[in-house]
């Protein structure tokens, strides 16, 4: 059996673009033919499920039956992704510690990664300190998300560096801004970015999205994926799955 990888995408603040980042990650892995499933913790509505209904289940990560649904079935996919609702990142990490998940990661039975989406306020830097204690055996990615034209104006670089350096091997990831109208149109279309670029509807049917907006999304997603290539994201997938992925290309 290959080693499963679990990716948590979260932040303690809302509106920083967690689901956007999760969607780019799902597209990244699916384009590489890596088996993936996702859990949306925004019960009951589930924004992620709207875009990726085939691979997404809506769960309440604080409830034991839903925890069992996520963690007892990890080996079913190469990558399990959890889009954690605003405010639940720290409680989720505590729950993972309590169920022995972090121990399993320490023992090398699971590859565990966290994408921590940072907001523009200084409070966001405090979240790093809160999260850091759980990160000793995880890959920790600090994501600056510019998709909403965020200005990290409250950040003093020296302060940021002092937080950043507290976590050994933390890796910074930058998500560039996407043209606002293109962003809006993908939201309206409710399809994965890849489907929008390919001019396909939710069921694979031909769509009539704007050529210009599709071009902007393709250009932007190319930059996002270049970031994922830079941080060698596919390395979190087990070597067996990587071989399978290369064979399918």
């Amino acid at each position: 059996m290959s080693k499963p990888a679990v990716i948590i995408v979260g932040a303690d603040k809302g509106g920083v673009g967690k689901t956007t980042v999760t969607r780019t990650l799902l597209d990244y892995f699916s384009a590489r033919k890596i088996a993936i499933r996702a859990f949306d913790t925004e019960a009951p509505k589930g924004t992620l499920k709207r875009f990726h209904p085939d691979v997404t289940d809506v769960v309440d990560v604080t409830k034991i039956p839903d925890q069992m649904q996520i963690f007892d079935t990890m080996s079913e996919s190469a990558v399990t992704m959890i889009d954690v609702r605003a405010g639940l990142l720290s409680p989720t990490l505590n729950a993972l510690r309590d169920i022995g998940f972090l121990d399993a990661a320490r023992k090398g039975q699971i590859t565990f990664s966290v994408f921590h989406i940072l907001g523009p306020s200084v409070a966001s830097l405090d979240e790093i300190a809160d999260t850091a204690e759980h990160m000793t055996d995880a890959k920790y990615f600090l994501v600056k998300n510019f998709i909403n034209n965020t200005h990290f104006f409250e950040w003093d670089q020296a302060t940021y560096n002092s937080y950043f350096k507290r976590i050994k091997d933390a890796i910074e990831v930058t998500i560039p801004k996407l043209n606002e109208m293109a962003c809006e149109q993908v939201e309206l279309a409710s399809v994965p970015y890849l489907s929008f670029i390919a001019n396909k509807g939710a069921n694979g049917e031909a769509a009539a999205y704007s050529f210009v907006l599709r071009g902007y999304v393709r250009h932007w997603l190319g930059h996002v994926w270049a970031e994922y290539d830079r941080i060698r994201l596919v390395d979190i997938v087990s070597p067996k799955d990587q071989v399978r992925m290369q064979a399918s290309r």
Binding site: N179, E180, S210, F211, V212, L213
Partner: peptide, 13 residues
């Protein structure tokens, strides 16, 4: 303006 770009290039293509 993005709307101007759409009006132009969606026709040119």
């Amino acid at each position: 303006d993005t709307r101007g770009q759409v009006a132009l290039f969606d026709d040119l293509i």
